[in-house]
Design a protein around this nucleic acid. Structure first.
Length: 280
DNA sequence: CTACCATCCTGGTTGC
DNA sequence: TGCAACCAGGATGGTA
């Protein structure tokens, strides 16, 4: 699930309880995630001081003082919960795969029902030269028309599909791609290399805006996403098109009885929501 | 090289 | 109400 805004929300929630703290205990309840959690993970992490938490696209990187970095991905259904208040002690839940304690003090729990997530360590100095980071595009918040436009020139696939490719821009997922294209008034079917520089500028601007707004609202809680205190993000209440098949487009004066409102189609196996009147 | 597809897994929703 | 089919925010490895 989590796309860039949800991962950024998790990062910000974790920082006060993990960054510049010592990880005292690490309990691995299940190893069989998307990538099996390596057997040495506990010994690499336990007792280590955490220097920084960084985010690259949809990945979190927790840099430890011993030169190792925890590579952490939420998959489709992952969430992180921080328990630090004695009034609300940690009670194990189904699908709690990792339980970490720090001297904040805090208990940090990674829950992932579908187990598409990842959690493993890797030497920090090699991170940038190793997949997935070595093949990851510019982070969506750093991306500009100047960096994006050249990357689209050899892509004849629809812009919707191309924006989901983490090698082009890192951090966008199905929701925010649909929303950004809608705000930019660009058709999801338009071949990526058919966008003018000016259209890419518009697109880039709206990607920035939509991500910033979503982060400010704690991300989108459709199903699994929660902030680290357990509360829901609320950007889902501000979607323009995602999940709104048949709903009248608020920016169109056209009659939804005639246009059918917001459309839903499949592109490369993923749902695309768009307004055919607004997005040409 | 690009593009498309199936796959990993659980759980919620839809339809009969 | 019960049950089966289908669908979901992602990434990857295989094939054409």
């Amino acid at each position: 699930m989590p796309e860039l805004p949800e991962v950024e929300t998790i990062k910000r929630g974790l920082q006060p309880f993990l960054e510049q703290k010592t990880i005292q205990g690490l309990q691995v309840n299940r190893q069989d995630l998307r990538i099996p959690i390596p057997d040495n993970t506990r010994q690499m992490i336990q007792g280590q001081y955490v220097q920084f938490i960084k985010r690259h696209g949809k990945y979190l990187c927790v840099e430890l003082a011993n030169g190792q970095t925890i590579v952490w991905h939420m998959g489709m259904s992952g969430s992180v919960r921080v328990y630090h208040d004695d009034k609300e002690p940690y009670e194990p839940q189904k699908h709690d795969h990792i339980v970490m304690t720090t001297d904040a003090p805090a208990t940090i729990v990674f829950n992932d029902p579908r187990r598409f997530g990842m959690f493993y360590t890797h030497p920090t100095e090699q991170i940038q030269n190793t997949p997935p980071f070595s093949q990851m595009g510019c982070d969506a918040l750093q991306s500009t028309a100047k960096t994006l436009y050249p990357q689209l020139q050899n892509k004849k696939s629809p812009i919707k599909t191309v924006l989901l490719d983490q090698a082009i821009v890192a951090g966008l997922g199905n929701i925010y791609v649909c929303e950004a294209l809608y705000k930019a008034r660009i058709s999801p079917f338009k071949p990526a290399n058919a966008l003018s520089f000016s259209e890419v500028e518009t697109l880039s601007k709206h990607i920035d805006e939509i991500l910033a707004e979503a982060i400010q609202k704690g991300g989108s809680s459709l199903k699994d996403h929660r902030m680290t205190d357990g509360s829901m993000g609320y950007f889902q209440n501000f979607f323009g098109v995602y999940g709104k098949k048949g709903v009248a487009c608020p920016h169109c004066t056209c009659d939804p009885e005639q246009t059918g409102g917001i459309k839903q189609v499949k592109q490369a196996g993923r749902s695309t929501f768009y307004c055919s009147e607004k997005q040409k």
